[in-house]
């Protein structure tokens, strides 16, 4: 998915952090966000690609997409809060 198709309201830069850091960074922000907020989580932790969408689904939010920035060694995970 192209990153130009997705616009984030809030960027959470967790590059360099290892599991479960990126997910905890995201959760901390999501908890205080208004419904409908779009987050872009930047992560170099490969487990996040699966862990974050897993948590997002369980928590009732929506994963909009996962963008692989292969040339720069990180992923962008776009999440929209449902509540």
């Amino acid at each position: 998915m192209s990153e130009t198709e997705l616009d984030a309201d809030v960027t959470v830069d967790s590059r360099g952090a290892t599991c479960p850091g990126p997910l905890m960074d995201l959760i901390g922000h999501v908890r205080t966000a208004d419904a409908g907020t779009v987050f872009e989580l930047l992560t170099t932790d490969s487990a996040s690609k699966h862990d974050v969408p897993e948590w997002v689904e369980k928590a009732g939010h929506e994963t909009l997409g996962v963008v692989d920035h292969d040339d720069e060694g990180y992923w962008s995970i776009f999440v929209r809060t449902a509540r």
């Binding site: 952090a17 290892t18 905890m24």
Partner: peptide, 18 residues
């Protein structure tokens, strides 16, 4: 050096806030 690992004690302290 590419891994910024939070120590267990810091993870648990942070979890207490969440």
């Amino acid at each position: 050096e590419d891994m910024d690992m939070a120590l267990f004690v810091d993870n648990l302290a942070r979890a207490s806030e969440l």
